Computed example of a mutant assay.
Amino acid sequence: MSSQRAPVLEPGWLLTPAARPYLGSILHKNRRRVFGLLERPALPPGLDVPLVPYKLFLHGKSGVGKTALVAWLAGTPVPPVHHETLGIEVTTVYWPAKACASGRPVLFQLRFWDCGDGAMRKFEHLLPACKEEADAILFLFSFTDRASFEELPAQMSRAMDPDGSGLVRVVVGTKFDLSVHADVSEQDVAAFEEAQGVRVLRAGSTPGAGGDRGGLARVSPILDALVESLWYRDQITAGVTPEGEGSPPA
């Protein structure tokens, strides 16, 4: 599992004093900035960094919190009442990080593809569209919905193609902050991680919680973990030893 190896990106770097200019590039008036399709963070002269884009597809049963997770990570609000996502919604999140080997910052562009479970079942072309050229699939379950957890192995088997070895598998448990009402125990999670060989990330349930500078501390562990897994995959694919110098192709 990834937790047993040395990190290839410096954990928590974006919240350190050295990263202040890069943190400022994704904020506006101390709140997360929402970027349009053709926009990217503006850095001071001399601090330009490589831009590495990734496509991440969210997969999970209706109601587990796919849309809320994206809003939580992007620092944007969602309606207080759950509504099924009718089609595909794409949200772009920029996340700077620092490579351990080179000591150089990298700007990651994370494009989250969120598709409603009902729409995906109704329209067969949506699943292939979401998976096309994807770099990672995020399999979601809710800590307050045991059925969503028990369905994970079957969902992962259906979604992963036989030749999908290049896809990064990520499992995210949502509504972790409602653990007093949890239907999934830590023992359940540990057994799943051991059986599947994947790490389970834990996300809160408060929409927009990562929208201000202080809220970044709550979302940074998940965003750091996502870019860490993808960057590590790229280095392995490019034949670069994770402990050595070099950067994977953007």
Rank of each mutant, 00 (worst) to 15 (best):
G204S: 08
R213M: 08
K29V: 08
G246I: 14
Y232T: 14
S25Y: 06
L178D: 08
G75I: 04
N30P: 00
A6M: 06
L126S: 04
V168R: 02
A195V: 08
L201W: 06
P128S: 06
H59N: 07
L27P: 02
D183V: 08
S179H: 15
R233H: 14
L230G: 01
C115G: 09
A6R: 13
L69E: 03
V200Q: 05
D212I: 00
V198C: 11
A203M: 13
R213C: 08
P17F: 00
G208M: 08
G60D: 13
V227M: 04
T174H: 03
C130Q: 09
G75N: 11
A6N: 13
V200M: 10
E10C: 10
K29Q: 14
A191H: 04
G116H: 03
G116L: 05
K29A: 14
D117C: 05
G166L: 11
L51F: 11
I137P: 03
F176L: 03
E194T: 11
L152G: 07
P249E: 14
L69F: 06
I26S: 04
D161A: 15
W95R: 00
V70Q: 01
L138I: 15
P77E: 13
F176I: 00
A159E: 09
P50W: 12
G103N: 07
I137N: 01
L230K: 03
E150D: 12
H82M: 04
T241S: 11
A154D: 12
H83K: 12
E84T: 14
A134L: 05
L226E: 05
P77W: 10
Q196R: 06
T144P: 04
A190K: 13
L178S: 07
L23A: 14
L110G: 02
P249N: 08
D183I: 00
A154R: 15
M156L: 11
L56D: 01
V171H: 03
A147S: 14
D117S: 14
L126D: 01
G214Q: 14
P7I: 02
G118P: 01
L230W: 06
V93T: 13
P77T: 13
I236V: 15
R213W: 01
L47R: 13
I26F: 11
K98E: 06
T174F: 03
L152E: 05
K29R: 15
I137Y: 10
E84D: 13
L107V: 02
L15D: 04
